[in-house]
Write a protein that binds this DNA or RNA. Structure first.
Lengths: 199, 199, 199, 199
DNA sequence: GATGAATGAGGATTCATTCAT
DNA sequence: AATGAATGAATCCTCATTCAT
């Protein structure tokens, strides 16, 4: 294949610069407008050649964007969700933290989702933090019996859909959505008295 | 603008033929492979010219595909959901019927979802059947208090995500997913004893 | 694949026009300078798009060039070689006629040879007119015993090498080369008294 | 111009390493796949920069490859052909030795030929060993009268065509081809009783 | 002697669309 | 109603080479 430029400091910095520019471009213009030319323009690169110099292909660039965003989000979540003692608390925190991340990094989230949508359906990432969390709660009796894969899919896709709601009603505060979603999936996972989780 | 070809019989048939070929192409090859050339090939058209003759633009063609599928689904749903007396029954029927539709028309559903994903986030279709149903149940006291827009979004995106689950675990029966999702959103909408809706 | 444009009259004419322009471009600038842009320029086409409209790929265009030239040459040869009664006469005529063709159509010959050289070594065209001619002479006792495949290869490559000689000594008359080569392979095929075929 | 790196020991070794990698790359992938990137990869160089550091241009690299191979072959031939007393023996040895070289160094031969084919027809190398040998035999009366330039071209191109035959019939032994070609050009050069040189 | 980084020109090809019957 | 022909902009990517240590 090709000699990777990840090892060096400057190379790594360039890669990150390009990734950031890609995120900004997709967030603003949408995936299919995010050509190398447009990305290079935003990153103030002398030519698109610099992109293909640092990334094997457009596909690899996009994969890198997703990896970067998901990596960021994972760190963000683990730091916040880690403190929870019960699975129920953890789920509540997971949902609210994700919404908070969307609020703080709307471009990142939107870019990752758009890229994901523009790819052929690949098998999902396997057992995620969320899925493990759900399994723990269900097996420990905190939650009702349900298929964790289905539940995780539902939660993920609902959270990914937040930007759509924001576009539809730009004024709405994301905190309200966080409350709403936390309550929704608190009920959906069952067992606990509903009142506890009503806002 | 251009004179529409919808009025005539043969024109209408041609349009439907092209729409069907578009659905099949997207379902098999994915949206971004679904070029006019590929669609024409599948529809056995002599040239792509026939497509632009019958549709103002690619965008209009894709809109027509979505309109066709959503129209079909709407009829399908109204026929099945209409008989429900309570909002709870209606929601249960809505979810199960949608899954059934996915089962019977996988290509249609996949095409509509892919097209939707490949468009810039436009404002959703406004107050849908689902949203009205949810409002009725909530206002009538059957459901807990929640934002119907958020709940509708969650349900829609979860249902649209079904093909992803099927790709990940091809063997699974869709009937099992229907039970699972019906139960999930029965709990999520609150109030009724959970046991009633467990399978 | 793609709907071919060969059937129609104008399409066929366009294809031939492009083939001719390709031959001229290769003959003058060489294969690797013969880009679509350069060919389109020479053919006075509005854009390179016209080439890819009429040919599936550059490879198909080049194959078409070879097919055209070899088809022309085959007709040329059959008309002249057909009259020979003995295999020896036929061979003599084959060589002289090929040289004559090179003289009359230098660009065609050069283009075909260059294209051939720029492709990965594919298996040759199988039993050619030349090879059959050699087998007839050998089996009939006119020629010595030899491997017809090797002899045919030697003759073909020698004839294809003529343009190289012309470049080296531009002044030389091709008629002299024809005599020389005819005598060379008259001896090489053996048996007949050498003097007969000396010029 | 640029200061050549031929003088130093390590520089010379690097140059040879790159030449060898170029030969291997062309032999395996073909000339037009043999980019600096691909060659550097095969030679395990950290970047293509090392190539342009040691060679003024790609053209110079390719010329060096040809010079290396032809130099090798020349030494090989002189050692074997030198012992011959008559021109006829020398020719026989020349052909057989060249075939032997092809057998022992297929990659080198193929690379040299491909490079040669991919260049614009330049004037040949001038009076070669082969051409001098032919002139000696002809002028001394061993051979018939013929144009040594034409005969040399025929022999060279026939020998260069051997790889094509091998591709067409991979099983065949090169020794058989050596016999066949030696006999062919023994007859082609004339005068001596053909039987002497039949196998 | 060696190398990571950067460069811009040029490559074929795909695309939806318009022209002219 | 249908169609063959034509179009030019845009795509990603590859290339050999130069810059600056």
């Amino acid at each position: 294949m090709q000699v990777k430029k990840e090892g060096t400091i400057t190379g790594s910095a360039r890669r990150m610069q390009i990734v950031k520019a890609t995120i900004a471009t997709i967030a603003e213009l949408g995936y299919h407008q995010a050509s190398f030319a447009r990305i290079a323009e935003r990153a103030r690169l002398s030519s698109t050649r610099l992109i293909s110099y640092h990334f094997d292909s457009k596909d690899e660039l996009m994969s890198q964007v997703i990896a970067t965003v998901h990596g960021d989000l994972a760190i963000y979540l683990e730091r916040r969700v880690g403190g929870a003692t019960t699975a129920r608390e953890a789920l509540d925190s997971y949902i609210r933290s994700t919404v908070a991340y969307v609020k703080e990094h709307p471009a990142e989230m939107r870019a990752a989702t758009e890229i994901h949508h523009h790819r052929r359906p690949e098998s999902p990432a396997g057992s995620s933090l969320l899925e493990r969390l759900l399994a723990r709660g269900r097996d420990g009796g905190e939650f009702a019996a349900f298929d964790t894969r289905v539940m995780a899919m539902a939660i993920h896709r609902t959270l990914d859909g937040l930007p759509l709601l924001l576009d539809a009603s730009p004024g709405t505060d994301l905190d309200a959505y966080a409350d709403e979603l936390a309550a929704l999936y608190a009920r959906a996972t069952g067992h606990a008295p509903a009142d506890t989780f009503r806002r």
